[in-house]
Write a protein that binds this DNA or RNA. Structure first.
Lengths: 188, 188
DNA sequence: GGACGATACTTCGCTACCAAAATATTTGTC
DNA sequence: GACAAATATTTTGGTAGCGAAGTATCGTCC
């Protein structure tokens, strides 16, 4: 088995804190490094299309809203676990660049409906495809059977801390089939 | 196999982007959520001891420096992949609270040596122990043999993107055994 | 039908961070 | 000993985020 940088990392810390479990430290550190790599790659992929990572993230939330690509600022803030104030700033910039549009809600004049423009859809798909390609590349290090095992292991761990509110649950107005919504993204 | 929130998340996105691989998306998303949870837990653990996460992180770098707990601001900045300017601000606050001490270097009058005080060592160990406990709790979802498999899978993936410079390699002045250093921490 | 509380978005003040410029010190050369 | 280059730290200016306050609108109770 080939050594990676985490093996060396552990060899150091075990001297300073003798009571750490190398296996625990290894799994945790490797997961964090992989997450970090994916975060950095998202940055590269976004910038290759002239976007900041948080701009792509915002477009991505709208992209998940089905074929109308609409949501309100508050919904986006909830999905991203951010304050509505931060969303206002993001949308201002995206609107100036023509990727989203603010529409007044017909029913509720307090509300604003944010919509992905055609240009916004295009850039979202392009940048998103690049990210997916890197994710597939990482998984390709394992055989399909191993991928399934890995997924099952991670699910077992996640169940210990799973909080359904963290992955923006579909708002599933269970009656209107045309509007889906949920999002993942920036773990961390 | 019990469902987690990621299974529901994927069920949604597969409708919006039909060409994503559920297995790839599942593994990636679960890793990111676990990393996110650990990050949030670090925040809780640090705050339980009156520290900000970045304050603990700074103490942790010094904690990894062996029994003298000393390093220079520039070294800390390198390990944390931050600018030296940011370290100055962190150290100012930690010094005011009595967790670190700035000493002039005897050999090089340009340098400042940052040292963990006794109080700093205490709070570092306390907060760090709490974090380690949560990491062990997560791993305990798996049997020992599974933990080894998981670790091996992650290592294989990490080797595709491993960059030794990311985990602050020990500066291992291979002659002086008394000063170790390396750090991990905030993956993303 | 008018007032009160809740909701939705925006604006303002603050924190932590980084990059770049400014400052101070040491090393090397003459 | 003095000047120039290299190195180390601090200061300055700018960005992204949050919390709280502000404004406008909706829903409801009397």
């Amino acid at each position: 088995m080939q050594q990676d940088s985490v093996d060396r990392h552990i060899a150091h810390w075990i001297k300073e804190i003798p009571d750490i479990d190398p296996l625990v430290e290894g799994v945790i550190t490797r997961m964090q490094m992989l997450a970090k790599h994916l975060k950095q790659y998202r940055q590269v992929a976004a910038e290759a299309h002239g976007l900041e990572p948080y701009e792509f993230e915002t477009l991505h939330m709208l992209g998940g809203c089905g074929p109308d690509y609409r949501a309100t600022p508050t919904e986006i803030a909830t999905w991203l676990q951010m304050s509505p104030a931060a969303i206002t700033g993001r949308l201002d910039a995206l609107e100036r660049r023509g990727f989203v549009r603010r529409l007044p809600s017909p029913n509720d004049r307090r509300k604003v409906i944010v919509e992905l423009t055609t240009e916004g859809q295009r850039i979202w798909r392009e940048a998103g495809g690049e990210q997916g390609a890197e994710e597939e590349r990482l998984l390709s290090a394992l055989k399909p059977a191993e991928q399934h095992q890995l997924d099952a292991f991670l699910r077992q761990m996640l169940l210990l801390v799973d909080r359904p509110d963290l992955l923006p649950t579909p708002k599933d107005t269970t009656s209107s089939p045309g509007q889906a919504r949920a999002k993942a993204s920036s773990a961390m």
